[in-house]
Structures are given as C-alpha cells and as structure tokens.
Design a protein around this nucleic acid. Structure first.
Length: 570
DNA sequence: GCCGTTTTCGGCCCGACTGTTTTCAGTCG
C-alpha cells in the first residue's frame, strides 16, 4: 500500500461522507490527512513496519492512525465499505460536474434516484430536474452541458504546456488599457509539475474593462462565468483560467492568497486568527483597519513570518522553518555551471558534438558532459566500446580547440536486468563520469528493481543515476522502487542522483529530491537534451529542485570544474 | 476527526459568483 493509495482512499471516504451530509470538519479532517500523507517523503507503510507513531503527523490523530494501520494490514477500509452502502460510489463522479456539489448530488439521488452520469442526463432531458425545489431551468441546462463536457475534459496539464497558454493570455491582458500588472499565481507559480488550472491576477482600477478584454482572447472556447472582479474562461486547449482583478493596495495579499497551496493558506490564516487578525485576499485586517496588503512581505510580516518562496508553500514544514529562521536558500538557474546529460547524432540526438558544445557555451556554462546511449539501446543506435572510444578521441580533439569551456567524457550506460552495466569496466574507466540508467524491464517487482539499481551503484565507475524512477508525467508511474533504500544506498556509495529536467520526466520528483538532500546525496540537475534548444529545459529541473528544498551546495553541477571532479571521486 | 499561550470541549479560513430566491444556499477556489 503506497502513500498515494492511502490518500486516495481517504479522499474517496471524504467524498462519500460529504454526500451523506456528514460534519464538514470531519470531511475536512480526512482530506487534510490525505494531503499530509501525499506530501510525505517516507512511505507510511515503512513507518508502520518500523513501529513509528503516526499521530505525530499533523492532522492525524488516534482514529486516523488506526484507519491507516487497518489499510496497511488488510488493504481495505471498513469505514469506506460502510459509507459505500449508504450512498452509491457512482455519485462521486457526479460531483466532478461543474456546478454539481455534494448537496445537489444527494438531492438528485434522494428525489430522482440519479446514481450515474447516464441517469443524470436522462433526468435533465426529461426536465425532471427543474421540477425539484432549488433547481431551475438554467441549472438543468447547465448540468446537461457540463455532463457532456466531462468526457472531453483533460486532467492536469503539464507545466511546460501550461506555460505556453499562460504567456499567451498574459500578453493579451497586458494590452488592455489601465492594466498595471499581470501575474500568474496558483500551482503554476509554485512550479508544480502539472497544473489543474491557471490563476491570473490583474492589477487595474477598472475591473469591468479587464473582464471584457479577457473575453476577447482568441484562444477562448467559452466564458464559464463573469462578474465584476472575477471571470472564468475555458481555453481551446481545455485549460481553465480564472482571472481576478485586484487594486494595487491588495496585490500582495491577493498574490499570496491565490498562490496557495490551500493547505499552506489555511495554516497561515490560523496564525492570523490567533493574533485577532483577519487575513483574506484583500489584506490583513484588525477589525476594519487594513494593516497590510500591497506586498507579500508585509502580509507575512503581520504573522511574524519572513517571505517564503512559492515552491515551498505546501504546508510541509516551510512554516516551521520560516519561524525558526531556517528557510533554505534555494538553488537558482544562475547557480548552474554545466549540464551533465545530453545526446548527439552519434546516437539519438539531433545535433553534433560540436553543436552541443557551442549550445552549452551559449547557456553560459563552463562545461557539459556528452552522455550518449550504450549498445543495448539498439533503437537509439547505442555505442559499443569501439564507437565510444572514437567519440572520446573526438572530444579530446574538440577540447583542444575550445577555450574556457570543457566537454566531459561520459556515457549514459544501460543498467541491465541483473544490475550489471552494458559496457566493460575498462572503457568506463576512461570517462570523466559515468551516468547509468534503466531503459528496460520496468516491470520487475519492488525488491528486484531496488536490488538492480543498488548493484549498478556498486560498480565504482558509476557517478550518477539518471531519471532514477523512470516515471513519465501524465504518462506512466515509475517502476516499483524502495526509494529510501535507493537514497540511503546512494549516500553510502557516494553516488549522485539526477533530477531530469525534461518537463515530461522531472525525475526525481520533488519529495524524493528532498529525501535525497536529507540523506546527504548530491543531486545533478540535467536536461537530457536531444537537441540544442532542449538545453533550455534546465529551468524546469531547477524549479523541481527548489520544490525539493535544494540549495546551491546540494546540487552537483553548481560546482566549478575542479570542484566537480573532486565531488565525483567516490 | 483534530487539537490546545483562552480551551480536553467547542471551536475549526474566507470571499465571489450564480441561480433561485425575496434573504440565501450551493459551489468553487
């Protein structure tokens, strides 16, 4: 039972309880516990095996700790089965329809027996919904429209795709007269790997004018709602965007509020309440007097907190760290001195050795490492020892011509099923660094996959494990791994782990990067570029590193070349 | 269901928008 499974179970139970009309705070307790568990770097099942007390976790008391243990030992939860008997689980899907929440779903079920999407559509078409008290013709029509849309609705959008949409719309809004500033807040600003929607904040006096201007954007499929200060639109790409207009004196409060996360906001607002203050998107207030609101710094100062980087605002220890003056100084793109993972035309890259070097230099780097694939990856035209040695000679020749820039000799060597490497040790010994990774047999069980990676790290030539979990964002889960053992194993052996900066990989993910930092494992942030323009992906890797609390010293490729060579010695 | 610098009971974050209402409930973020 993984953390995500436990979190999902609690969220399901919360959904069912909500439809039943259970105490809203009880429902919230389940959701908050789910969030806590999802944000943990350690596996809850391991904590139970080690006999740790789960009630030390925030939002988890005696009852929820027992339920987690029940889940861990039996794989199911009687409370969930019980709730499922009270209301059909199919109702949860109905709450995903925009404008249908738990109360209305319950009413539709009680009054009309609606327990599925099809039953809902039929009831709407037969106009039985508008006959109910509290429902009207408009609501009925809207339900029908939204039920049809539900099928085509995408899930969360990858950050790089969201960036395209966000920048386009932001530019459009900036053209509106009277607009002083446009900022994208929400999970986009926190740099989560995917976003559910976009939250845009506009500083302007005339809200009506901005709302009208937004409605004219060419990429809009439809306007879902529109008020004086807030409008929600759906883009052709399927992405939902909320645009809000705020006055300048509230900009900091609004930016803070709409950046979230929700869990972070709730925690900070509680701190305001404890000081007899009210904190909302317009500012910090003592009775009716506004004490702060123009900047995030002055808002946070009212609850005696320093400014907290958005990437950390997940209520996973950042508030406590801020109070103790122990916030990390997060790594930045400017700290990066080189890129340690990229391919050339020798295998499946699109650019030559020399073109990659030139592109690396244009990034402002001091060095890059060329890491083409090894022979096992036949479809990528992987290198055998002889072809690798040819490339090494080419690199020597290139380095003699380059000034104040170094191309490091490397390889992305395949890790075979038994943990052996795909090239002989003697040729690996001729490299500056050896990057190893898995490209096959993703389906081994957890124990064997973990052993496989540990065996690979046993090879003294291995410097770095690339995309350690093999996951693809919105694509596939990583292979089964005991991450704690991988991280501890890397720490013992002096092996580094990669944050692969491809927006589709971002592997390690944030919580595992943080786990590695805590174990003292150095992280390389690398683009895995297969073309020169993909070196630009470095920013996504840096964002992910920041979400993992990494500082400059935690990152291998912030080092100068001599420091790097030293750090690579095992 | 959780939690404690006012509390082991009684609180628990806050506001915009919509539709169906004559003053507000439901939903969403």
């Amino acid at each position: 039972m993984q953390n995500a499974d436990i979190a999902r179970t609690f969220n399901q139970l919360a959904d069912l309880l909500e439809i039943q009309g259970a105490n809203a705070f009880r429902v919230r307790a389940y959701r908050s516990a789910a969030q806590t568990i999802e944000g943990l770097s350690a596996a809850v099942s391991d904590m139970i095996e080690r006999g740790e007390d789960l009630t030390t976790l925030g939002g988890i008391g005696k009852d929820l700790a027992e339920k987690i243990e029940t889940l861990h030992h039996s794989g199911s939860l009687p409370a969930l089965d019980e709730a499922g008997k009270q209301v059909p689980a199919g109702l949860i899907e109905l709450t995903r329809i925009d404008s249908l929440g738990p109360k209305r779903v319950k009413a539709l079920y009680d009054e009309l027996g609606v327990d599925s999407l099809d039953a809902l559509k039929q009831a709407a078409r037969e106009q039985r919904i508008s006959a109910l008290s509290g429902f009207g013709r408009k609501t009925e029509r809207k339900i029908l429209e939204e039920a049809d849309r539900l099928h085509q609705q995408a899930g969360r959008t990858r950050l790089d795709e969201a960036r395209q949409a966000a920048e386009g719309l932001r530019h459009h809004i900036e053209q509106c007269a009277g607009v002083e500033q446009v900022v994208v807040a929400g999970s986009y600003r926190r740099r989560r790997e995917t976003v559910g929607d976009l939250d845009m904040l506009v500083v302007a006096e005339d809200g009506e004018r901005v709302m009208a201007h937004v409605g004219e954007w060419q990429e809009i499929e439809r306007v879902a709602l529109r008020g004086e200060t807030k409008t929600t639109v759906h883009l052709n790409s399927g992405l939902q965007v909320d645009v809000r207009v705020v006055p300048g004196e509230s900009f900091g409060a609004a930016l803070y509020y709409f950046t979230g996360s929700q869990a972070h906001n709730v925690a900070v607002r509680k701190m305001a309440v404890a000081r007899d203050l009210k904190l909302n998107e317009y500012g910090v207030f003592e009775s009716d007097e506004q004490l702060a609101g123009r900047t995030e710094e002055e808002v946070l100062a009212q609850v005696e907190l320093p400014w907290i980087p958005p990437e950390l605002r997940e209520n996973c220890g950042e508030i406590e760290a801020a109070q103790a003056g122990k916030l990390p100084e997060l790594v930045t793109r400017d700290d990066i001195r080189g890129d340690l993972h990229m391919h050339t035309t020798a295998t499946d890259g699109k650019a030559s050795l020399e073109e990659m070097a030139e592109a690396g230099r244009r990034q402002g780097y001091n060095y890059i490492a060329i890491t083409d694939h090894s022979q096992r990856l036949a479809m990528a035209n992987g290198l055998d020892a002889a072809r690798l040695r040819e490339q090494l000679a080419d690199i020597d020749e290139l380095n003699e011509r380059l000034k104040r820039f170094t191309v490091l000799k490397s390889i992305e060597v395949d890790i075979l099923e038994d943990g052996q490497l795909d090239l002989p040790d003697e040729v690996l010994g001729e490299l500056d660094l050896c990057v190893a990774s898995i490209h096959s047999r993703f389906n081994l069980d957890r124990e064997r996959q973990t052993e496989r990676l540990l065996r690979a790290m046993d090879n003294p030539h291995v410097s770095l494990i690339a995309h350690p979990t093999g996951r693809i964002v919105n694509g596939r889960d990583g292979y089964e791994l005991d991450m704690q053992r991988i991280v501890d194993g890397a720490a013992e052996r002096g092996v580094c782990l990669e944050i692969n900066a491809q927006p589709a990989r971002l592997d390690l993910r944030d919580i595992h990067a943080r786990m590695a930092k805590e174990a003292g494992v150095l992280i390389a942030i690398s683009t895995d570029a297969h073309a020169t323009d993909q070196l630009d992906h470095m920013v996504f890797g840096v964002d992910q590193a920041r979400r993992g609390w990494l500082e400059k010293d935690d990152v291998l490729n912030t080092r100068t070349l001599p420091q790097l060579r030293k750090a690579l010695k095992r």
